[in-house]
Structure formats: structure tokens, C-alpha cells
């Protein structure tokens, strides 16, 4: 059997590979890297902290203290007085665009994107 250098399937496979590579550029580079976490309390920015320094921050709210933990380039709500614990169960935030809200205690953390497509969402 003669070996053609490039067979029809090879062209398909090459297109798939290049497509995958380009898609990964859009998917992983558009939002930038997780570099800092923005902590908000009562609608105000409480702190902007780098994710490179491991630490814990206590954020006061109407129900009590929400504790935010930063470790290994990620951030999470460690402790919160809200009754249903949604923001604690959200777990670690490690990618741009992720967010955890503790509505009852009026606190939130989020990792900002490089280019924010919108300012806010209203419901």
C-alpha cells in the first residue's frame, strides 16, 4: 500500500487539533488569570486582595462576621452566619468570573475578569 503523506482523515484531524488549540485560547485566555479577589460588604468594596498571599479576613455584616480565606491562589467563604450557607458551600473560587454571595449577611467575594462584559445584573 502506498503511503500518501497526508490522508483525508489527517486533514480532518489537523483541523480538529488547531480548532482545539484556538478554542483553548479563547476559553482560557479571554478572562485573564485569577489574580485578586474583591470582597464586598453592604454594597461597598470592602477589600481587593491579591490571591498570592495566603490569609484570612473577617468581614462584618448585619448578621455577624463572614470569614474569607485566601490560599494557594484561590479564595472561599470559610465561615458565614447566613442560615442556608450557600456561599460557604460554593467552595473555592479559582477562575476569573466566579463569585460567591452571602446575601443575608450582605457580603460577597468574586474574582474579576480582565474585561467585564457588563457592570451589573438586576433581577
Amino acid at each position: 500500500m502506498a503511503w500518501a503523506l497526508l490522508r483525508p482523515g489527517d486533514v480532518l484531524m489537523l483541523a480538529l487539533a488547531v480548532g482545539l488549540a484556538l478554542a483553548s485560547f479563547v476559553w482560557l485566555w479571554r478572562d485573564g488569570v485569577a489574580e485578586e479577589v474583591v470582597i464586598r460588604a453592604n454594597g461597598q468594596v470592602f477589600a481587593r486582595l491579591s490571591l498570592r498571599h495566603d490569609r484570612r479576613i473577617e468581614v462584618p455584616g448585619p448578621l455577624g462576621v463572614t470569614e474569607v480565606q485566601i490560599a494557594a491562589g484561590r479564595a472561599r467563604i470559610l465561615r458565614d452566619p447566613s442560615p442556608r450557607q450557600y456561599c460557604v458551600r460554593q467552595g473555592w473560587l479559582s477562575r476569573p468570573g466566579q463569585t460567591a454571595l452571602c446575601l443575608p449577611n450582605r457580603t460577597s467575594i468574586d474574582i474579576p475578569r480582565r474585561n467585564t462584559p457588563y457592570d451589573s445584573l438586576n433581577f
Partner: peptide, 17 residues
């Protein structure tokens, strides 16, 4: 052990192609 390594995926994928 950090998801920051995902940042290197695109150039590696392009190089692999």
C-alpha cells in the same frame, strides 16, 4: 497544584498541533 496552570494550555496545544 493550582488551576493557574490552565493558563499554559493554549500555547502547549498550539505547539502540539
Amino acid at each position: 497544584p493550582s488551576d493557574g496552570i490552565l493558563y499554559f494550555v493554549p500555547p502547549f496545544a498550539l505547539a502540539a498541533s
